[in-house]
Simulated assay, not measured.
Amino acid sequence: MSDWKHRVSDSFHWKKLLQYFFQGLIIIAPLGITIYAVWWLFTTVDNILPNIIHSLFPQLLGTDGEGELKRIPGLGFIVAILIVLFVGRVSSSFVMSRLVDLLDGLLERTPGIKFIYKSVKDFLEAFTGNKRKFDKPVLANVDGADIWRLGFITQESAANFQMAEYSVVYIPLSYALTGVMYFVPKEKIKILDHISSAEAMKFAVSGGVSEVD
Results as ranks from 00 to 15, higher is better:
Trp4Ile: 15
Lys5Phe: 12
Arg7Ala: 12
Arg7Phe: 12
Ser9Met: 13
Ser11Asp: 08
Phe12Asn: 13
Trp14Ala: 12
Lys16Leu: 15
Leu17Ser: 11
Leu17Lys: 12
Leu18Ile: 10
Gln19Asp: 13
Tyr20His: 13
Leu25Pro: 01
Ile28Thr: 10
Ile28Pro: 00
Leu31Val: 15
Ile35Leu: 15
Tyr36Arg: 07
Trp39Val: 12
Trp39Ser: 13
Trp39Glu: 08
Leu41Tyr: 09
Val45Asn: 04
Pro50Ile: 04
Ile53Trp: 02
Pro58Thr: 03
Gln59Asp: 15
Gln59Lys: 13
Leu60Cys: 06
Gly65Glu: 09
Glu66Gly: 11
Glu66Ser: 14
Ile72Met: 07
Leu75Phe: 05
Leu75Pro: 01
Phe77Cys: 01
Ile78Glu: 01
Arg89Ala: 15
Val90Pro: 04
Ser97Trp: 03
Val100Trp: 09
Asp101Val: 11
Leu103Thr: 09
Asp104Leu: 12
Gly105Arg: 06
Leu106Gln: 04
Leu107Ser: 08
Gly112Trp: 04
Gly112Ile: 08
Phe115Gly: 08
Phe123Leu: 10
Phe127His: 05
Phe127Glu: 03
Asn130Lys: 13
Lys133Cys: 00
Pro137Ile: 06
Pro137Glu: 00
Ala140Leu: 09
Asn141Met: 11
Val142His: 00
Ala145Tyr: 10
Ala145Glu: 15
Asp146Ser: 14
Asp146Cys: 07
Asp146Lys: 07
Trp148Ala: 02
Arg149His: 07
Leu150Asn: 01
Glu156Ser: 11
Ser157Ala: 08
Ala158Asp: 03
Met163Gln: 13
Glu165Ile: 09
Tyr166Trp: 00
Ser167Tyr: 02
Val168Gly: 00
Tyr170Ser: 13
Ile171Met: 08
Pro172Thr: 03
Pro172Phe: 03
Pro172His: 02
Tyr175Ala: 13
Val180Phe: 06
Met181Ile: 15
Tyr182Asp: 04
Asp193Trp: 08
Asp193Gln: 14
Ser196Met: 05
Ala200Glu: 01
Lys202Ile: 11
Phe203Cys: 00
Ala204Lys: 09
Ser206Arg: 03
